[in-house]
């Protein structure tokens, strides 16, 4: 299953806070798509994924200062 979390307009740490919350509701193998426009989250979200051993299946820019990342629950 794939879920989308829209966090555009939220400044850090809120995108990550909400991503963690959303991740808690998922089961293993599910994917969470996080859309964000806070620059610091380009560091914080991949870092969080790497520290928890969650694979990142997609990570790219959408437009200027706007990104999307897909993290899989493992």
């Amino acid at each position: 299953m794939k879920q989308v979390l829209e966090t555009d307009g939220l400044v850090c740490p809120f995108p990550l806070v909400e991503a963690k919350e959303a991740m808690d509701g998922l089961t293993g193998g599910d994917e969470l798509v996080i859309n964000f426009d806070c620059t610091q989250a380009t560091e914080a979200i991949p870092q969080w994924a790497a520290e928890n051993g969650y694979p990142v299946t997609h990570f790219d820019r959408v437009t200027d200062a706007s990104w999307t990342i897909t993290v899989q629950k493992a």
């Binding site: 299953m1 979390l5 806070v17």
Partner: peptide, 19 residues
């Protein structure tokens, strides 16, 4: 002050996002 928004339950999604 730092808590997730109350209504932050992510919607199940099938389509990619439009810009």
């Amino acid at each position: 002050t730092i808590k997730p928004r109350k209504s932050s339950a992510p919607a199940p999604a099938a389509e990619s996002r439009t810009v």
